[in-house]
Design a protein around this nucleic acid. Structure first.
Lengths: 213, 213
DNA sequence: GCAACTGGTTGACTCAGGTCAAGTCGCATC
DNA sequence: GATGCGACTTGACCTGAGTCAACCAGTTGC
C-alpha cells in the first residue's frame, strides 16, 4: 500500500538493550512504535507489585495506540530490540489525511481486542496445563508466520514472564513444562522447547481457543 | 455532534425478550447495535461448554464492531432489551464519509481494549474476594454514571453469569457474597446488593484495578 | 392448593495450584 | 578454576477454590 511507504519516512530507528523499559503505563504517549527486531513484553502492574503480562510483541507488531492520550500499559525489551519510532504529532497529521490508514488502524484495534478476549477465555477457564500448552502452540505459530522456523521453538522470555502472562506462578509453569515433557509432547532445551505432537493433545482434550495470539 | 444525529436516522429499533440471543460468535456481522434499554451479556464459548462472559453491556454501549467481518463473541439479552440496529452497509457508507466518526470509532475500540486488559489483570491476579468486590464496585459506578442511582444496586444477571465473568464457579460467587455480607461491607437483597463501605475495603487491601468497567 | 422448576445457598470433602525452602545449572567475572 | 549470581527446578506442605450433593425460596402452571 502506497501510504505505508510514506509512513516509513516519518520513522526514526531506536534501540533498547535487554530489560530496558520502552515506555510505562500512564505515561504521555508522545510516540508509538513499530517493532522491527526482538521481543517486547507488554504488561500492567498493580500497586502491590503483582503483574499481568498482556502480550509478547514480535517484529511487525505495533506498540501503543495512535489516538490514545497515554499508554495504558508498560513495555520493555526482552533481549536487544530495534524499533521504528513515530512521533505522535507527525502521525496524527499523517493519519488525518488518509481514510485508508484510519481503516487499517480500526482493523488493527479490532484484532487486538479479539486477541485480548481470547486471552480472557484462556485465563478464566484454562487449567495450568491448557494454559501452558496453548501458549506454546500459539507462540510457535506466531514465530512460524515470521518464518523464524526452527525446529526448536525459542523462548526468550523468563519463566516469570510466562507465569505472569498466564496467571500462574513460575513454579507452576516450570512443573507444567516438566509434566508435558513427561508426556512426550515437548522437549525442554536451553532457552526454548521442542514441540512434538502438542497440538494433537489440544485437539484430543477438546479445546480450541482459536490458535492465534 | 452533528454526525451522530444523522446516524440516528439510519437506525431501526429492535426488541428482544429475556434470554434471547441477539447474535452469535462467528456469525456474519450484517449489523451492529447500540443498546438503548436493558442489559446484555457478551460472551465466548468453548466447544466443551465452558463460557467466558466478556462484559455486561448497559444502555449507551455498542455491541459489535463496525469493520469486523464477523462477530467475535455472542450476545444475549438479560431481561427485556431494546436496541438500535444499524445495517452494516448503511453504516460503512456513512462512516467512510466522515473522518470524525472514524476517529470516534478508533477511540471507542481503544477504550474497549483497555477495559479488556484491565479485566485480564483482574482474572490473572485477583482472589475470589477481590474479583467479586471489584465487580460490584465497577458495576455500581457504571450504573451511577447512567444515573440509575438507587441505593441498592440491582444485579439483573444470574450468579452463573457473574461467575463466568470473573473466572469463578457460581458456588464461589455465592459464598464470596455471603462472606462480604458477614464483613458488613454489603447487604444481599433480592435481585441486588446494597453497598456499604466496599470501596474502603478495596483501598485498605491496596488494590486499585482502575475502577471502571 | 400443590407439583415442578429455576435460581440461589450451604455444607463436607477434594485437589490443583500456591507457598516456602532447598537445590542445581549455566555463565559471567576475577 | 573458584566464586558469585540469576534463572530454573524440585520437593514437602498448605489452602483457596472447585466438586458434589442436599436444601431452600420464589414462580409458574395445573
Amino acid at each position: 500500500m502506497f501510504e505505508l511507504r510514506e509512513l516509513q519516512k516519518l520513522a526514526s530507528q531506536v534501540y533498547f538493550r535487554s530489560g530496558k523499559t520502552i515506555f510505562s503505563e500512564r505515561e504521555l504517549a508522545d510516540a508509538v512504535f513499530g517493532l522491527s527486531q526482538g521481543v517486547v513484553r507488554l504488561y500492567k502492574l498493580l500497586p502491590d507489585g503483582r503483574r499481568q503480562v498482556l502480550a509478547f510483541a514480535l517484529p511487525g507488531d505495533f506498540l501503543g495506540m495512535p489516538f490514545a492520550e497515554r499508554h495504558n500499559f508498560s513495555a520493555d525489551a526482552i533481549g536487544e530490540v530495534a524499533l521504528c519510532r513515530f512521533s505522535r504529532a507527525d502521525l496524527a497529521e499523517f493519519i488525518q489525511s488518509s481514510p485508508n490508514i484510519m481503516r487499517l488502524i480500526i482493523e488493527f484495534a479490532i484484532r487486538e481486542l479479539d486477541k485480548a478476549q481470547d486471552q480472557l477465555l484462556l485465563l478464566g477457564n484454562g487449567s495450568a496445563e491448557e494454559k501452558v500448552a496453548i501458549f506454546l502452540v500459539n507462540w510457535r505459530n506466531r514465530l512460524g508466520r515470521l518464518s523464524v522456523f526452527s525446529e526448536t521453538v525459542p523462548l526468550p522470555m523468563r519463566r516469570q514472564d510466562i507465569a505472569d502472562f498466564l496467571g500462574l506462578k513460575l513454579e507452576t509453569v516450570s512443573r507444567t513444562l516438566a509434566k508435558l515433557e513427561q508426556k512426550n509432547v515437548i522437549r525442554i532445551v536451553p532457552k526454548g522447547v521442542f514441540l512434538t505432537g502438542l497440538e494433537q493433545t489440544l485437539l484430543v482434550t477438546g479445546r480450541s481457543y482459536q490458535p492465534q495470539m
